[in-house]
């Protein structure tokens, strides 16, 4: 495959990842969020495979398959089950209103591009232009955690952040060593299980998954 075409595809997929990130930022329904998360995982997996093919790094295929199973199939499934069991599929309330969140998100993207400009000058990789997108995805994930009140959305925000980091790893250095990636994948899986358990406990304790209620745990003066 032509390097140029690969670069184009890579940029296109990066744009899609960013788009899904913005989609998650504005999506009010739980199921919609989970679906967007699954789409983001799919784009990520495709991107990894293409980078692996272009750079001739075969271990990236393995991490691509891993991403596919974990982030496109397993985690969305777990989240689905959780949402059904806990009956929390109603609309998500936000702390800041949606247009405002969008504006902050756009500012973050511009900030990331500004930040990554010197790196792009130096790097010679095919994927160098997508580094800014990866950073923006991380920051939008964090922004999502800040602006949402619901525990499940916060977890999705966290997982989106992880997606951003993974994306940064593939685009900046053609992926981390396989051992590290396997470890991270396992961590994510275990984290998902722990979150699941905690959701149940939070739900039974506070009768809600609204994290605002947890402010009651604060010690009074």
């Amino acid at each position: 495959m032509n390097i140029n075409i690969a670069s184009q595809i890579n940029s296109f997929l990066a744009a899609l990842v960013l788009l899904t990130a913005f989609g998650m930022l504005v999506q009010r329904r739980m199921y919609g969020l989970v679906h967007l998360f699954a789409w983001q995982g799919l784009f990520l997996s495709l991107n990894t495979a293409i980078v692996g093919f272009v750079a001739d790094r075969h271990h990236l295929y393995i991490s691509s398959v891993l991403t596919l199973t974990l982030k496109v199939i397993l985690l969305p499934y777990i989240l689905h089950v959780l949402i059904q069991r806990l009956k929390v599929h109603k609309e998500v309330e936000t702390v800041v209103n949606i247009p405002m969140t969008m504006l902050i998100g756009i500012a973050l993207v511009i900030f990331s591009y500004h930040l990554m400009a010197p790196v792009r000058e130096l790097s010679t990789l095919v994927t160098r232009s997508t580094l800014a997108v990866a950073l923006a995805t991380v920051m939008i994930g964090l922004l999502m955690m800040i602006t949402r009140k619901h525990a499940v959305t916060q977890i999705i925000g966290f997982l989106a952040m992880e997606n951003g980091l993974f994306f940064a790893a593939t685009s900046a250095t053609y992926g981390m060593p396989l051992v590290v990636e396997l470890g991270v994948a396992l961590d994510i899986l275990i984290a998902a299980f722990i979150f699941g358990i905690f959701f149940f406990h939070i739900h039974t304790t506070f009768d809600s998954l609204d994290v605002e209620k947890m402010a009651r745990l604060k010690e009074e003066d």
């Binding site: 930040l115 920051m139 922004l143 955690m145 800040i146 009140k149 994290v211 402010a215 604060k218």
Partner: peptide, 25 residues
């Protein structure tokens, strides 16, 4: 500083990251 709200703590980390990124650029 201890608001007891998760969002507040997340904002602290967020601002810290942004500030560090700006300064370390």
């Amino acid at each position: 500083l201890q608001q007891g709200r998760i969002q507040a703590y997340l904002i602290y980390s967020f601002i810290t990251i942004i500030v560090l990124l700006v300064f370390s650029r």
